[in-house]
């Protein structure tokens, strides 16, 4: 998603996303922020990246991934401003965000999108490819690189800092 596309998004807009996204939840966030703070090279390029708060179940035979819905976003709030500063542009999750995160989204002209909460089996249909990109030892909490097609999402916080839950 480029800056112009992000700028055009307004809260409550319903979109269908196609392209490459990365999963990351609690432990991966902790490691990414530790790496940034100690000046280490990151295992994924955060510039313009899309992060999906998700820890999928194992893939059954014939599927690229298992059940893969969003996890509660606010547990990532304490890490998010650092990632936004490092170039992260789009976050996908469920539920509200802290004031600090909303301010950082506005500052860095990013966007927060909501995926259908508790619909991990349904969302499986929109994931076309999946492979571990980093932190394999974290199992389901590893960073997965996903190729998605027509992933249905709702704009939760837009680049002007408007919040769907206000």
């Amino acid at each position: 998603m480029n800056d112009k596309q992000i700028k055009a998004l307004k809260i409550f807009d319903e979109i269908k996303l196609s392209g490459v996204i990365y999963t990351a939840r609690d432990q991966a966030h902790k490691r990414l922020v530790e790496a940034i703070n100690s000046g280490k090279k990151l295992p994924i390029d955060l510039k313009g990246a899309i992060i999906y708060y998700c820890g999928p179940t194992a893939a059954p035979k014939g599927k690229v991934i298992g059940s893969c819905g969003p996890t509660t976003s606010n547990r990532m709030d304490k890490f998010t401003p650092v990632l936004l500063k490092a170039g992260l542009k789009v976050m996908i999750g469920k539920g509200g965000r802290s004031k600090e995160v909303i301010a950082a989204i506005k500052k860095y002209k990013a966007v927060y999108l909501l995926a259908y909460a508790g619909c991990g089996a349904l969302i499986n249909k929109y994931i076309k490819k999946a492979k571990v990109a980093a932190y394999k030892d974290l199992g389901p909490e590893a960073i997965f690189r996903l190729e998605v097609k027509d992933f249905p999402l709702i704009v939760g916080i837009d680049s002007q800092g408007r919040n769907i839950y206000d």
């Binding site: 998700c54 820890g55 999928p56 179940t57 059954p60 599927k63 298992g66 059940s67 893969c68 819905g69 996890t71 259908y116 508790g118 619909c119 991990g120 089996a121 349904l122 499986n124 249909k125 389901p140 249905p152």
Partner: peptide
């Protein structure tokens, strides 16, 4: 629409033997 997605999710889970939610 969202309730429809939740109902669809249950149907997909049962038919395709996927966990209803990734949080098992």
């Amino acid at each position: 629409k969202l309730l429809g997605a939740i109902i669809d999710n249950a149907n997909v889970a049962r038919a395709e033997q996927l966990a209803i939610c990734q949080d098992t």
